[in-house]
């Protein structure tokens, strides 16, 4: 397989470093944390990581294109609440899912309009829409916690063997997005637009279309994450997903994406999500108080970006 994206010389070392770090962390926990190295715990990590992974896919696309999307933390509860309301009202599950996805895509289209056409800063735009969507979620749920009928929670409940459907869905989406990013025209153009939008425009790339599409993708994935959350928990409220924005950003950055655009990959994001999940899980098993866990997560993030910066510097001057 000749793949200029994931196996390029300059990109591999950074990704490999984080990967090695993940292996070390896993090995460390496996040795010192009893109950960590079990198939059951592995599945726990994957189950809790699947929502973050799905949301991170959207975040990754946006970050590669040179922007970022804070609104995930609002779209997730909004779609979860919409899903709960519709299924409770007797709307068929698939129709309810379609409506939720449409909501996510609509938010993405709004972003496209403001960010790509009116050239408003993505930070401001998505901050605003995060507030709007989260507010709508609370309004729609009337500040309450809505329940999801058990028959609408099959994504969370049904499993093939021991693997829940939502995990399979997550894996399918991960593989699909990897193929899109690394092996299609669209993927190449997203990297190029993120690398230098003006150069891409002058070379005839439809920068507005490419730059806008990533927000639509991101809205879509946030909606999927919302549906999965509601199915997993059989409940939905506006207070859900308050940490998903920062977690998804942290994960893609850990995985080698640069907030300046043009860098990042799906395998990297997977490693980033797993690293965050493993650290949280392992420390809980070691009974480290939650306050320290936050500190450690922050330190790991800082260490990872510092390392990648040092590597880049070494490459440039060498």
């Amino acid at each position: 397989m000749t793949d200029t994206r994931t196996f390029s010389l300059s990109r591999l070392p950074a990704l490999a470093t984080v990967g090695i770090f993940l292996v070390v962390v896993v090995a460390g926990f496996a040795i010192f944390a009893q109950g960590f190295w079990t198939p059951n715990n592995a599945s726990t990590i994957v189950i809790t990581a699947s929502v973050i992974m799905i949301a991170s896919l959207g975040q990754l696309l946006v970050v590669i294109s040179g922007g970022f999307d804070l609104s995930i933390g609002g779209v997730l509860p909004l779609t979860a609440v919409v899903y709960a309301s519709l299924t409770t009202a007797g709307v068929p599950m698939l129709a309810a899912m379609a409506v939720c996805l449409a909501v996510g895509i609509a938010v993405g289209l709004v972003h496209t309009y403001f960010i790509v056409h009116l050239k408003i800063n993505p930070l401001i735009t998505t901050l605003a829409t995060m507030s709007i969507t989260a507010g709508l979620a609370f309004t729609l749920a009337n500040g309450q916690t809505l329940t999801v009928p058990p028959e609408a929670g099959i994504l969370g409940d049904r499993a093939i063997g021991t693997i829940p459907w939502h995990v399979i869905l997550m894996i399918v989406l991960v593989v699909l997005m990897h193929l899109v990013l690394a092996h299609t025209l669209l993927g190449r153009r997203i990297y190029m637009v993120g690398g230098n939008p003006e150069a891409a425009r002058l070379a005839g790339v439809r920068v507005t279309v490419i730059g806008g599409s990533v927000y639509v993708f991101s809205g879509f994935f946030a909606a999927v994450a919302g549906i999965v959350t509601a199915s997993q928990l059989l409940a939905a409220s506006g207070a859900m997903g308050s940490t998903i924005t920062m977690q998804s950003l942290a994960a893609v950055v850990l995985g080698g994406a640069a907030l300046t655009g043009g860098r990042g990959s799906v395998p990297g994001a997977v490693i980033g999500v797993l690293l965050l999940g493993v650290i949280a899980n392992g420390m809980s098993i070691l009974h480290v108080p939650s306050f320290y866990q936050q500190v450690v997560t922050g330190l790991v993030l800082l260490a990872a970006v510092t390392l990648s910066r040092l590597q880049e510097r070494a490459r440039r001057s060498g």
């Binding site: 190449r188 190029m192 690398g195 230098n196 043009g262 860098r263």
Partner: peptide, 13 residues
Amino acid sequence: KTDGLALNQTISE
């Protein structure tokens, strides 16, 4: 640098 090339992308791209 500003209008012509994406410096953090590969020569091939």
